[in-house]
Nucleic acid binder design. Sequence first.
DNA 1: CGAAGCCTTGATGCGCCTCAACGTACGTGG
DNA 2: CCACGTACGTTGAGGCGCATCAAGGCTTCG
Lengths: 231, 231
Amino acid sequence: MGSLDASLVCDLPPFEHMARQDIAALLERARSIRVEKGAAVFGQDEAAHSFFLLLDGHVRVVRVTPDGEQVIARYISSGELMGIAQALGRSTYPASAIAAVDCVVLAWPGAMWTEVVSRYPGFASNTYKTVGSRLQDAQDRIVEMATERVEQRVANAVLKLAAQTGRRTEEGILIDLPISRQDISEMTGTTLHTVSRLMSAWEAAGWVKSGRQRIVVVEGHKLMLLAGGAK
Amino acid sequence: MGSLDASLVCDLPPFEHMARQDIAALLERARSIRVEKGAAVFGQDEAAHSFFLLLDGHVRVVRVTPDGEQVIARYISSGELMGIAQALGRSTYPASAIAAVDCVVLAWPGAMWTEVVSRYPGFASNTYKTVGSRLQDAQDRIVEMATERVEQRVANAVLKLAAQTGRRTEEGILIDLPISRQDISEMTGTTLHTVSRLMSAWEAAGWVKSGRQRIVVVEGHKLMLLAGGAK
DNA sequence: CGAAGCCTTGATGCGCCTCAACGTACGTGG
DNA sequence: CCACGTACGTTGAGGCGCATCAAGGCTTCG
C-alpha cells in the first residue's frame, strides 16, 4: 500500500524521540490495512506473523476460554501498538484483536522486530514502556478482582473507558465506541444482568446516561467514590 | 562483596547464549546480598534503584492495597530475575518482594540497565522473554479470576506451586517453601477459611497431605480435573 | 509455660449468578 | 416502507457459593 507521511505519526508515543527520517524509513516498510468493524486484526493462538500500530479506530483485545467464555483484556486506542508478541519472544498471539469500529492499522512483518530493535533503540524502549504499563494494568486488575466487589469493578471499568476514549459532550463524557452491557461484564468478570442493574441504578441517580451500546458519564466523581475513593 | 564465578550462573536462563567472559564481566559489577526470611528485597512504590537476580531461595512478590489487603502477584524461584522495573521504563517498584526463606540475591544498579541492553543484547532479549511470560501469566490469572470458581483457582494455585517449587518425596510432591492457608488465599482472591476447608476435603479424599505451612500433592491429576480438565 | 501464630470447623447471611420473561431499537428483505 | 428477525436491554424471583462471624485446638518459639 502507499507510503504514509512521517508527520502523521511522529507525535505518537511509539515514535517519541525518533528522527523524522528514521520514522519515514520505518513507515516505508509497513503495510497499511483497513479492518472492518467486527473483523479480527489477529487471532488468538495464531502464528505471530506481524506486529501492529493502530492508526485509527478502536480495537478490543479478547481472550476466549476453552469453554467459550470471553474475557476482554483491554481496549486499544489509536496511536497504540498491539500484537507485539515477538518483542516478548512469543511465537503466537495470546489473544484476539477485534475491531470495535472500522479501523486502519499499520503492520510490520514480525521477523523485522530484531532488526528494528537494534536499528531504532528509541522505538524499542518505547515499546517496552508500553509493555510495562500493560503488565502494571494487568496486575492492577488482578488486585481489583481479588479485593473489590462487582459494583466497584464496574465503576472502575466505566471510568477507565471514559478516560481512555471519552469525548466531552454537553451531556457529559461520552464513551466514544459502541459498548454493550455484555462488553462491560466481560471486562469485569460479572454478568450482563448485574451490569444492567448497576447502570439502571446509576442512571436513576443521575450519574450516567446510557442506552443501546452507549454510555455517557455525567458525574464521574460519584463513580470514583464508588470505585474506591482512596486512590 | 566478592566476585562470583561465571560457571555458577551460566546455565541460568537469563544468561543463555552469553559468552562466558561477558557473564563474568556482568557479575563483576553486581553486589551479592543475603536476605533473611521475612525481609524485603525491595518495597512497593520505592525508587527502583536496582534490578536483581535471585541466586538462592524463594521470594514472594506482594502488592498491598490502599486498605491494607495483600495480594500475592507471584513467587520467584532461584535463577529468576526480579525488580526489573527499569527495563520497562518504570521508576518505582510496583510491588514488594519478600524473602519466603533465607535468600541470596545479586543486585545491579538500575542505572546500568541501558548500558546492559546495548552491550549484551542476549541478556536483554532473555529479560523481555521473562517479561512476556509474566504478562501472559497475569492475563491468564485475570481470565481465571473472571471465569472460574474458588475451588478451581485454589487447585490451580497449588498445582502451579508444585510445578514451580515442587520436590519429589516418597509421600508425593512437596511444595518446598513455607506456605500458609492465608498465602494461598492471597494468591487466589479468597479467604483462609475457604482454603482451609478445601484442603481438609482434599486431604480426606487422599489427594494431598498438608500441615502447618506445608503442602504435599499426592494425586496431582485429581486436582487437575478440578482445576478445569480441559486445558 | 505462656503467648502468638496457624489451622479447623460450625453457623449465618448476603452478593451476585442463574433462570425466566418481556420490552425495545436496529437493519434487512419482501 | 413496513414486517419481521435479531440483538440488546430491563427487571423479577430464587438459590447457592463463599465471605463473615465466632469459637476452639494445636504447634512452635521465646
